[in-house]
Design a protein around this nucleic acid. Structure first.
Lengths: 155, 155
DNA sequence: TGGTATAACATGGGAAAATATGGTAATCAA
DNA sequence: TTGATTACCATATTTTCCCATGTTATACCA
C-alpha cells in the first residue's frame, strides 16, 4: 500500500482580526505531499466548517458525472449545494489560511478555532461548541458501541 | 492525480449598464490553465445563466457520437437546445465578460449577478432569486439527508 | 537526567500585488 | 456618420505575500 494521508488530532489555534488562522503543520504536510489544495465549506449538519482536499472534491465531481446524467435535477441540487459553498484556501509561507466571514459566522468562530481530524476530512469548530459536541459524541459512543464499531471499520 | 479544475464558491459581482461583469478570478484561472473558453447559455431548468468550458461541451458532443444509444431522444433534443443557445464569452484584460440581453433577461439580472460554482459548470443568478433557490435546496437536503450522505461518503 | 541549543511553529503587523469596477478611447459594421 | 462593440486606462478596495517576533517542541550534549 502507498503512503497514507489522514487528517488527525485536535488542535486549537488563534484567529486574528483578518480571519487568519494557522493550518496545523500536519495538515499542511498532506497538502504538500498530494500537490493539492484545501477546500472548506459549511457543514450541512453541524455548526462547524468542514474541510478536505480539492482532490477529494474532484473525485466526487467525477463520480457524479458518471452516475447521474448531464441534465438531472438531483445533480443540479447537489452540485449547487456542495461546489457552490466550497472554496479553495491556499496558505501563505507562514502556513495560514484566511477564513471567510460566511464560514466564521456559520461556525460561530471569533478569536479561536479548533481543528478536528476526521481522516479524509477535518472540521473547524468554535472551542466551546466543540467541547460540548465531543462530550455528546463520547457519551453516545459508550451507549452504542456495536454500531459505532461497525461504522468505523466500514471504509 | 493531475491538476484539478473545479468551479467553486458563490461570488457576487456588479453588472454595469453595458452588461459587463467581472468573471471571478478563480474561474479565469481555469480558463487560462486549460487554454479554453467560457461558454454560456440559458439554463433549461431554472431562471439563470449556465456556463462551462468549451472543453466540456466538446466532451458532451463526443459522448453523443460514441454512444448513441446512451442518450435518449429527449436528451438529444436537449443537447441541441444547448448547442444552439450557447455562445463563447472571452474576457478582456481586466477580466470582464459582456453578457447579452437575451441571457440577462432570462435570468432577470439587472445590476448585480451571483456566480455559483457547480464543479464542471457554474451558474449566474439574480441575487434575490439565488437566495430563494439556495434556501430551497438546503431545505430539501436536510429532509433527504440519506441520499446526500451517500453521495458525499461514496469515495 | 537535566539543561541548553536548535529548529519548527504560531502570530502580529505592514508592504506589495491582485481584483473589481467606473470611465474613456479605439474599432467595426451598418 | 452613427450606434454598437471591444480594448484600454485609472483607481479604490480587497487579498495576498513577506518580514519580525514570541512561543513551543525537538535534538543534542554534559
Amino acid at each position: 500500500m502507498g503512503k497514507v494521508f489522514l487528517f488527525l488530532d485536535t488542535i486549537t489555534n488563534k484567529v486574528d482580526t483578518k480571519g487568519r488562522v494557522s493550518l496545523p503543520a500536519d495538515y499542511r504536510e498532506i497538502v504538500k505531499e498530494l500537490s493539492t489544495d484545501i477546500v472548506c465549506y459549511r457543514s450541512l449538519t453541524a455548526p462547524c466548517i468542514e474541510g478536505c482536499t480539492e482532490n477529494l472534491l474532484a473525485k466526487l465531481a467525477s463520480e457524479m458525472e458518471n452516475s447521474l446524467d448531464f441534465f438531472s435535477q438531483a445533480q443540479d441540487n447537489l452540485t449547487n449545494l456542495i461546489f457552490g459553498d466550497a472554496r479553495k484556501f491556499g496558505f501563505d509561507s507562514t502556513g495560514r489560511i484566511v477564513l471567510t466571514e460566511k464560514l466564521l459566522k456559520h461556525a460561530q468562530i471569533t478569536d479561536s478555532a479548533v481543528f478536528v481530524g476526521k481522516g479524509r476530512k477535518f472540521q473547524i469548530w468554535n472551542p466551546e461548541n466543540w467541547a460540548k459536541e465531543e462530550a455528546r459524541i463520547r457519551n453516545d459512543a459508550l451507549k452504542n458501541r456495536p454500531s459505532l464499531t461497525f461504522a468505523k471499520e466500514n471504509n
